[in-house]
């Protein structure tokens, strides 16, 4: 386990409240230690950039839904990946879209992972656990 990662937050960009709640619950079931910050739309997500520039702790991981009000998820991704400060932050696209176009675009813009959100809650919890396990414990993030 990487000690330096423990306190770094996870940014969840998700407009659907039920999904936010269920995600948080799923993480809670796994006793995830990292705090979870939530951006409720694309605009909120990009608003984080100046705050990080101002010195706030960079998130360990960003979980990004694609279908977002105001600023589209892919647009958010593009901004994150084009900014020197945020470019290295792993972004996991967590979406219900199985569209080839979306998958293709996400990876092209630099997404680090693309995960389909299952409808079945049991499966959803499982997916959340795997994401947390991998990105927060197995993976070594950039420093």
């Amino acid at each position: 386990m990487n000690v330096g990662t423990l306190n770094r937050p996870i940014l969840l960009v998700e407009d659907n409240l039920a999904d936010v709640d269920l995600t948080l619950r799923a993480f809670a079931r796994r006793q995830l230690a990292n705090p979870v910050q939530v951006a409720r739309d694309g605009e909120e997500a990009v608003d984080w950039i100046p705050r990080w520039e101002a010195g706030e702790t960079l998130p360990l991981l960003i979980l990004l839904d694609l279908k977002l009000p105001r600023i589209d998820g892919l647009e958010v991704l593009a901004r994150l990946k084009s900014h020197s400060l945020t470019r290295k932050i792993p972004v996991v696209v967590l979406t219900t879209s199985e569209e080839d176009k979306d998958i293709e675009s996400a990876y092209s813009l630099g997404a680090n992972s693309y995960i389909l959100k299952p409808v079945d809650f049991v499966k959803f919890v499982d997916v959340a656990a795997q994401v947390e396990m991998y990105w927060c414990m197995v993976n070594t993030p950039p420093r």
Binding site: D19, V119, F121
Partner: peptide, 9 residues
């Protein structure tokens, strides 16, 4: 799908 996931969850 999103509400479905909520109902199920």
């Amino acid at each position: 799908k999103a509400p479905l996931r909520g109902i199920d969850g």
